[in-house]
């Protein structure tokens, strides 16, 4: 399939590698990752931005990849769960913590939870407040990830298996 009025070639970086998929203009990043690039780590739970299973990092920020049109991502840097671990095979510390804490059962929400947690930790460090952050806290100062902060910031990622308490423990393991 080549570029035409309905398709475009989109140069972008995926997990550190330069890629140039030709994408249908209607395709979401999630579908391009899963169907074209074979990166099925990002999951489709709802396709409507309601569950977080498709969470990946774009330019370091967590996004619901089912809500992003792939054609809009020229030059962006995408990291999926497959690209979190350092090359050489070790698990990323959060991946390790999820296994240690049994922070999942079926595992279908898990890549999204992990990518979301990576993004959330970076946001807190950058001083972004959440709904539960003390309004009196210094604006822009790093936010300490208490259990309440973790719960709040990861509430866009549904886990129907109900692994939430273990997910919170896993995130604490890497932030403390």
């Amino acid at each position: 399939m080549g570029a035409d009025v309905f398709h475009s070639e989109v140069p972008l970086t995926v997990n550190g590698e330069a890629r140039r998929p030709t994408v249908d203009h209607r395709s979401t990043l999630l579908d391009v990752l899963r169907e074209q690039l074979g990166l099925t780590g990002a999951k489709k739970g709802c396709d409507h931005g309601q569950c977080g299973a498709c969470t990946v990092l774009v330019d370091g920020r967590r996004v619901n990849s089912c809500l992003l049109l792939a054609v809009s991502l020229e030059g962006r840097e995408v990291i999926t769960v497959e690209g979190l671990a350092p090359a050489g095979g070790d698990l990323h510390p959060l991946q390790r913590a999820f296994v240690d804490r049994d922070a999942f059962q079926c595992g279908y929400c898990t890549p999204g939870q992990i990518c979301s947690a990576v993004g959330a930790i970076a946001e807190a460090r950058a001083g972004r407040a959440s709904h539960v952050t003390d309004p009196a806290a210094d604006v822009g100062a790093p936010v300490e990830l208490t259990r309440d902060e973790i719960r709040e910031r990861l509430s866009g990622n549904i886990c129907r298996c109900g692994a939430y308490p273990h997910i919170v423990e896993a995130v604490e393991d890497v932030t403390r």
């Binding site: 769960v81 497959e82 999820f98 296994v99 999942f104 898990t110």
Partner: peptide, 13 residues
């Protein structure tokens, strides 16, 4: 420990 754990957290499953 859950045997398929590493496969699930890396997206390999």
């Amino acid at each position: 420990e859950r045997r398929e754990g590493p496969a699930k957290v890396t997206g390999a499953a």
